[in-house]
């Protein structure tokens, strides 16, 4: 399937792309557009104005994708809290990881194109998933 989002990918879109590819559509192809009108007819838009997979009721797009696709993995919801604070920074969650994650993704967007950002951030989110999974299992910080 094809998925479309705004060009100039930052944390919420990078996290959504990772989530979609890992947990929703392994064969996902991503298209980056500058104008919502340029979204191809066969592509599902996300993190764009007017898209169903956007900011809904104070949630960031990552949380919306989790909800819409019925993903109930607590590890993903914890990552959702981190992405929420990295993107919206509204203090809804306690996520000290958020400012660091935001800075890393913003830096990536400065040094490469959107394909590059997704290629580099994918393994980062894999690592964040594993760390978060172990932390939830142990009930404390993993070694």
């Amino acid at each position: 399937m094809r998925w479309a989002t705004r060009a100039g990918v930052h944390v919420d879109r990078a996290a959504c792309a990772w989530l979609i590819r890992r947990f929703v559509d392994p064969g996902a192809e991503f298209v980056f557009v500058t104008d919502p009108a340029d979204v191809p007819a066969d592509a599902t838009p996300f993190d764009m104005r007017g898209a169903a997979l956007g900011h809904v009721g104070g949630d960031c797009s990552f949380e919306t994708v989790l909800r819409v696709h019925g993903l109930d993995d607590p590890v993903l919801w914890r990552i959702g809290e981190i992405v929420h604070e990295a993107d919206l920074d509204d203090g809804r969650f306690d996520a000290p990881e958020a400012p660091g994650l935001d800075v890393l993704l913003r830096g990536l967007s400065m040094t490469g194109d959107d394909e590059h950002t997704l290629a580099v951030s994918g393994p980062l989110f894999d690592g964040l998933y594993e760390f978060t999974r172990r932390r939830l299992l142990l009930g404390r910080e993993p070694a």
């Binding site: 100039g8 104005r49 007017g50 956007g54 900011h55």
Partner: peptide, 14 residues
């Protein structure tokens, strides 16, 4: 800038 514009766009949707 890209961020301020995006922030206001989401608020417009709200």
């Amino acid at each position: 800038d890209a961020r301020t514009r995006e922030s206001l766009e989401w608020l417009a949707d709200d």
